[in-house]
């Protein structure tokens, strides 16, 4: 393929003085002064959080108030910056959720490490961890920003459930077998 050399257009005299260009630049910036500003007055005005926004990861309960996480530790495994730490535990044999058997004894997310990638939400088989719309965190110490289980549940609240897997399981267990 032949090489085609493109010649730069020589500058006109006016262009060489820069002055018309500077003037037109000045006009553009001047016009900008009178444009409306786009600043959001942040703490008073809040940005609109779009659907699917990935804010702080939180733990949620199902509508019956049962903690959904069963400490399967998949989120801990998948988390790229290793922000999640879980110490699994066995649930009380007596309580309402005894049939779930397993739940997190301790669950902490180091928000200083979290990169809000949402992998934890994606991997969770129980839909127990959600990146919700909270995005501004602050604390005075590093420890404060390692969120513990109670804090994560407080942030997460309750989300609607489509499956009620464990409730169904419990009722099946109670109904027993048509044996």
């Amino acid at each position: 393929m032949a090489i085609k050399e493109l010649k730069r257009k020589p500058l006109t005299f006016a262009e060489k003085t820069y002055l018309p260009q500077i003037a037109s630049g000045l006009i553009i910036t001047l016009k900008n002064i009178f444009r409306p500003t786009i600043t959001l007055q942040y703490p008073e005005e809040r940005p609109e959080i779009p659907e699917g926004y990935r804010g702080v990861p939180t733990l949620v309960k199902d509508p019956n108030g049962r903690e959904k996480c069963v400490s399967c530790q998949l989120c801990e495994f998948v988390c790229p910056p290793k922000a999640i730490r879980i110490i699994p535990g066995e649930l009380d044999e007596e309580g309402d959720s005894a049939h779930v058997e397993k739940g997190p004894k301790e669950f902490e997310i180091d928000m200083l490490r979290c990169i809000y990638c949402g992998y934890c939400q994606e991997v969770c088989p129980e839909e127990a961890i959600w990146l919700q719309d909270e995005f501004s965190l602050s604390g005075y110490t590093r420890e404060e920003l390692i969120y513990q289980k109670d804090k994560l549940y407080e942030l997460g609240g309750t989300l609607p459930d489509n499956h009620f897997k464990w409730d169904k399981k419990k009722s099946a267990e109670e109904a027993g077998n048509p044996h």
Binding site: Q73, E76, P88, E90, K102
Partner: peptide, 9 residues
């Protein structure tokens, strides 16, 4: 070993 640690770790 029950509920102590997931094997993939």
């Amino acid at each position: 070993f029950r509920f102590k640690m997931r094997v993939w770790f």
